[in-house]
Design a protein around this nucleic acid. Structure first.
Length: 338
DNA sequence: GATACGTGGCC
DNA sequence: TGGCCAAGTAT
């Protein structure tokens, strides 16, 4: 429960601070809902520096400036545009959302929060973000930044990732969202989490809303359930290159599989590769797994398994590859043709 | 409620 | 280094 006066003080302090020091991200220079949506989906579980640093946002929107422009794009093309961002399901859902907009909304991005929320891949957070950032609607949003801020602001000693915790955060978000300047306010809230109310070293001394904050131990919050333990995995692959045809054998992940639609080196059982030369060994992490990738020289005789295909070496750049395999192949091919 | 899903940055 | 985390969503 919050007095109106306190809420207004919180909002204006935050907004004033944001006007002074807020960053000038490209998605803050547009109100095009499609552009806002693309930025929000890219930023799901992904840091600003990653999206901005390698030019994903700009490149993606040059290629797909409207929902119509992506609705008929080939799977490999959209996955390639997403290569390196991870969570590849996101770009498939983006295309599904674009198709829904074309088919159910005559190509015009919907303006109602409930309609936005109905689009594939859009949950509570993203719906609130699009409604407030694109249309300046007074809709709350809760992401990791907001959860951290509110848990500290209200010294919330319960887990934020439980049903009750989530409900509490959204209630606070709803009570505090600015009725008059929601776009600025929501931007400011997330910026505060990014710049000041950070996870490891909050800058309470220069926080614009420090007089509102109830916690005395910010780094202990928010409370969350412990993470799943990391599992070690070995991944045994082979490098098979057909010199005559200038092709390479690759495997395409099936619809239901991890990294669906992405290509990688074909896997084999240990006994099939045990007498082959080891060409490369690398560690990489994926979700809660720690994977050791071994790449062996392929045996003379190869039996093709399901979803495996010989691909021209010249097509490698255009095929969507998960980052670890992109790196591994760069190294392997450099050595191979050295 | 629990779990799967990618990757890179940080300390 | 190894573990934690980030502008979450779907199942």
């Amino acid at each position: 429960m919050l007095a109106t006066q306190q809420a207004q003080a919180f909002q204006s302090s935050l907004i004033d601070w944001f006007k002074e020091v807020g960053k000038d991200y490209p998605w803050r220079q547009t109100t095009d809902p499609w552009h806002i949506l693309v930025s929000e989906v890219m930023l799901q579980q992904t840091q600003v520096a990653t999206v901005l640093g390698k030019g994903f946002y700009t490149r993606f929107l040059e290629r797909y400036p409207t929902p119509a422009s992506i609705s008929n794009a080939p799977e490999q093309e959209i996955l390639s545009a997403w290569e390196g961002l991870g969570y590849y399901r996101r770009v498939r859902n983006l295309q599904k959302a674009a198709r829904a907009i074309c088919e159910n909304h005559e190509g015009v991005f919907p303006t109602q929060h409930s309609e936005i929320l109905d689009l594939p891949g859009i949950g509570q957070y993203t719906a609130g973000a699009v409604a407030s950032f694109a249309y300046n609607q007074s809709q709350p949003l809760v992401d990791a930044n907001v959860a951290r801020i509110f848990s500290r602001l209200f010294d919330y000693q319960e887990r934020v990732d439980s049903t009750a915790g989530t409900k509490q955060l959204w209630q606070w978000a709803g009570e505090l969202v600015s009725p008059s300047q929601p776009r600025l306010y929501n931007s400011a809230l997330m910026e505060l989490g990014q710049q000041i109310c950070t996870n490891k070293s909050p800058q309470c001394g220069i926080c614009p809303v420090k007089t509102c904050c109830q916690t005395s131990d910010p780094t202990s919050l928010p409370l969350k359930k412990a993470r799943k333990k990391t599992v070690l995995l070995d991944e045994l692959c082979m490098l098979a290159i057909d010199q005559k045809n200038q092709t390479i054998l690759l495997h395409k992940a099936s619809d239901s599989a991890r990294r669906s639609g992405m290509w990688k080196l074909p896997e084999r059982q240990a006994h099939e590769l045990e007498n082959q030369p080891l060409l490369l060994q690398r560690n990489y992490a994926i979700t809660h797994h720690k994977v050791t990738l071994y790449v062996y020289q392929a045996p003379e005789k190869i039996e093709l398994l399901e979803d495996e295909a010989w691909q021209p070496l010249t097509s490698l750049d255009a095929l969507p590859l998960p980052s670890p395999f992109r790196r591994a192949l760069n190294t392997l091919l450099k050595d191979h043709f050295a």
